[in-house]
Design a protein around this nucleic acid. Structure first.
Length: 523
DNA sequence: GTTGCCGGGTT
DNA sequence: AACCCGGCAAC
């Protein structure tokens, strides 16, 4: 993928696995073609609504729903595994590593399918791409064996074959209109609810070896997807070394989102909730604690943050993608250009509360990274703390936070008060926040956040070395500033006035000369 | 009273 | 943005 803008995606697959006795759902969607453009099961779309293990029989049940609305029940995982139209495998005896990330199949704009496998956990030492190919070949071969039809050209035969292969299925009226994704999710929720009431679910057995890794894998997959969707840096998990350099803006693809991406609906919040419900994601509970999910535009130099995904989608679609603002049509491409972030609303409100006329920081300009040296009015004075050189990287990244430790930097506040420098603008799409900081995940209690300032010890100060702000630095939404309206306590360090005296006022730092907070002897 | 510095004004 | 200063609050 060399292009910065990823091709449109049409299909996303998500693996599904379940702990013994547990329930999980996900979508498993057969693509229209494999990585070589070979058509397999074109048009077949199905979702594994749920699966659970039956320890008494050792088998698993899979509830499958085909795109025409047929709900099927597969008594064994093999019956799922052997499905010719499945591009990916559900957990099985041969994938005991448990965690599999299913490749994301993107359909490029040229119509040439591409495999965008971003993250691969190799269960059996095999690359997942290889695995997919093998599976595809195996599937194709099975088709050939059974039907003597080398390449099924239409979905209909495949469907028929699926029906033949299924040991049982739950019939659904065929004349039913094709399900929308929301309907599918509702149905999935229904299935989930049904299954979750099973005693097997309520008292999961302690471990069938074959299924246990699945549970772990599922949890890990969830965890990985969540972390990747909220970490703010768009690196994949540690096992993922095959990620190409991310496009600009980075690609926020995670499992959950991939699940959602199959939908063209604008109402992704509801979907998200549904998804969380379906996945029994602990995230909502976590977020109850004043954590609000915001959606941040990842477009370069765009810091737009909206409270709703539809809003950010519309923003991306209209502002960056140049789509018609009237049209709600979404091909999902916008999803690449925004990410989900968590905002600690407590911190935010705290920051907002400081946006009062009495706030001493409201006029704080956005931290910037001036490359130039400040005009040095004191050539004889050694100032190791001033005039540091910034790397080109820090220049090119406007959102990169930089410490400014020049004598003129008194106006540049320490970049910690993100909410303070935020603009909180209500909009029709929800709350819009614009800030000049990188995507930040606010985690942990605000009380644990401390304002980081360069510590000076007397006049022997080390050159500023942590130009690149540590990650923890960015996670300082609301440095516990003194209560709004109160002054910053007077520092302990001597200031230029005391050090140099009035007679050497020209040796003072500029801030001191201007009766600003001393920048040379920072507390 | 001294000192630090915020807020605001001027250039 | 750089510069300046009134005024406030902590010492």
């Amino acid at each position: 993928m060399n292009s910065k803008r990823l091709p449109k995606r049409s299909v996303v697959g998500i693996s599904v696995c379940a702990a013994p006795g547990s329930v999980c759902t996900g979508s498993l969607q057969a693509g229209t073609s494999d990585t070589h453009g070979k058509a397999i099961a074109a048009g077949v779309f199905e979702i594994i609504q749920a699966c659970k293990n039956d320890p008494s029989t050792g088998s698993s049940f899979y509830a499958l729903m085909l795109d025409e609305g047929t709900l099927k029940k597969c008594p064994t995982e093999e019956s799922v595994m052997n499905r010719a139209d499945l591009k990916t495998t559900v957990h099985g005896k041969h994938s005991h590593a448990g965690l599999e990330k299913i490749p994301f199949y993107y359909k490029s704009e040229e119509g040439v399918p591409e495999l965008e496998q971003k993250s691969t956990l190799v269960p059996n030492g095999r690359k997942l791409e290889d695995r997919v190919h093998v599976d595809d070949k195996r599937s194709a071969g099975r088709l050939e064996d059974t039907k003597k039809d080398p390449l099924p050209q239409s979905p209909a035969p495949v469907h028929e074959q699926i029906r033949l292969q299924m040991s049982s299925y739950i019939p659904v009226p065929k004349h039913r209109r094709p399900l929308g994704h929301v309907d599918m999710e509702v149905m999935a929720a229904t299935v989930l609810t049904t299954l979750s009431t099973s005693p097997l679910v309520l008292s999961p057995p302690s471990g069938t070896p074959g299924a246990d890794p699945c549970s772990r894998g599922w949890k890990e997959a969830l965890s990985a997807s969540y972390s990747s969707s909220t970490s703010g840096n768009w690196s994949w998990d540690a096992s993922d070394q095959s990620v190409p350099s991310p496009p600009s803006p980075p690609l926020p693809v995670d499992t959950n989102k991939s699940f959602l991406l199959s939908s063209q609906s604008d109402d992704n919040i509801e979907e998200s909730v549904t998804t969380h419900f379906l996945f029994e994601d602990p995230i909502p509970r976590k977020r109850k604690n004043s954590m609000k999910v915001m959606f941040k535009c990842l477009w370069k130099n765009c810091e737009k943050v909206l409270s709703t995904s539809s809003g950010i989608q519309k923003h991306v679609r209209t502002v960056h993608l140049g789509r018609n603002s009237d049209s709600d049509y979404s091909d999902g491409e916008e999803d690449f250009y925004y990410s989900e972030i968590e905002v600690n609303m407590d911190s935010l409100s705290e920051g907002l509360s400081s946006l009062t006329p009495t706030s001493p920081t409201t006029t704080a300009p956005t931290p910037s990274c001036p490359l130039r040296d400040p005009p040095d009015s004191e050539p004889a004075l050694i100032r190791p703390w001033g005039g540091k050189t910034l790397t080109p990287l820090s220049q090119s990244a406007p959102s990169t936070l930089c410490h400014i430790r020049t004598d003129h930097a008194y106006q540049a506040t320490v970049p910690v008060s993100i909410p303070v420098s935020s603009k909180f603008v209500p909009s029709e799409n929800g709350i819009s926040i614009s800030w000049q900081s990188p995507p930040v995940i606010f985690k942990g209690s605000p009380g644990s956040l401390t304002q980081i300032r360069t510590v000076s010890i007397g006049e022997k100060r080390q050159p500023l070395q942590h130009t690149t702000v540590p990650k923890t630095h960015a996670a300082l939404p609301s440095a516990p500033k003194p209560a709004t309206g109160t002054r910053k306590p007077r520092g302990e360090a001597k200031k230029c006035r005391k050090v140099y005296g009035m007679e050497k006022r020209d040796m003072w730092c500029t801030a001191c000369r201007w009766k600003k907070a001393c920048q040379r002897f920072i507390d």
